[in-house]
């Protein structure tokens, strides 16, 4: 699982109960900031902006959206489930 996905799927994944699970989750979040130098708030903003642009053209599943940090920490990978294509009509 990518580092950033923990951030965006926070509401769906159950909170870890063991203290080791809490430690691991806290580390994964802390390292997102350490590695890509952006804070969770900025990431949330990025997510919202992407949603805004994409949803003009597609009906997307916001809950299923995932942004992850690639294996070697050198790319952001965005995964957006699409419900059905929506023809964008500026006049509607």
């Amino acid at each position: 699982m990518g580092l950033l996905s923990g951030l965006f799927s926070k509401r769906e994944t159950p909170k870890p109960v063991t203290s080791s699970g809490v430690a691991k989750e806290r580390l994964q979040l802390a390292l997102v900031y350490d590695r890509v130098k952006i804070s969770p708030e900025v990431l949330e903003t990025i997510k919202e902006e992407i949603v805004e642009v994409i949803s003009k053209h597609f009906d997307i599943d916001r809950q299923g959206m995932e942004i992850t940090l690639g294996e070697r920490n050198d790319r952001l990978e965005v995964n957006i489930p699409v419900r059905r294509s929506k023809v964008y009509n500026q006049n509607s």
């Binding site: 063991t18 203290s19 080791s20 699970g21 691991k24 994964q28 390292l31 294996e71």
Partner: peptide
């Protein structure tokens, strides 16, 4: 402590540091 869920396992650490 790992068994009790109170210390990260070696695998946890490897998952994070890769």
């Amino acid at each position: 402590m790992i068994k009790q869920g109170n210390m990260m396992s070696v695998q946890d650490v490897l998952d994070i540091l890769a």
